[in-house]
């Protein structure tokens, strides 16, 4: 049951959804969003692709096994805390880097972002692990 309309729409939708998921991830600290929500949107994009085409293509587009994404995500989230430890701060006391980009405004970067990207990856990984495996069965 492959629908040409769904496939055509999906091609452009997936790109928008993935961009949107990263947008949600990055704005999360100040506006509604964050790693968890962004991850769910990202996972939905791949799930849509898997439904419109097939699981194999979705896996090819992902380019990495979901298990690996989970592992990398956990390592990033846990590693964010370890960076603080190396700087003699308590675990997960985030480190900050502040800068001012002219015409753009103040930017706060920190290990929190590493942590949130970790959450993002774990959420995508787990959701896709379940959905893709289920649809293959």
């Amino acid at each position: 049951m492959k629908s040409l309309i769904l496939q055509t729409a999906t091609r452009s939708l997936v790109a928008v959804m993935l961009l949107f998921s990263i947008f949600l991830l990055l704005r999360g600290h100040d506006e509604p969003g964050g790693g968890f929500i962004g991850g769910l949107v990202g996972a939905a994009a791949f799930a849509l692709y898997a439904i419109a085409f097939d699981v194999q293509s979705a896996r090819r587009m992902l380019g990495i096994r979901p298990q690996m994404m989970i592992a990398i995500g956990l390592a990033m989230a846990g590693g964010a805390g370890i960076i603080s430890l190396l700087a003699s701060e308590p675990y997960f006391a985030h480190l900050w880097y502040h800068t001012d980009i002219p015409g753009f405004g103040e930017i706060h970067l920190g290990t929190f972002l590493l942590f949130d990207i970790g959450v993002f990856l774990v959420v995508i990984g787990v959701t896709l692990l379940v959905i893709l495996t289920l649809s293959e069965e």
Binding site: G28, H29, E31, P32, G34, Y91, H94, W96, F115, V119
Partner: peptide, 16 residues
Amino acid sequence: FGRNVVNVILVDFRAI
């Protein structure tokens, strides 16, 4: 340094 309290709680205050 975050204005979204929910996210700040998730990634910073209660990161563990």
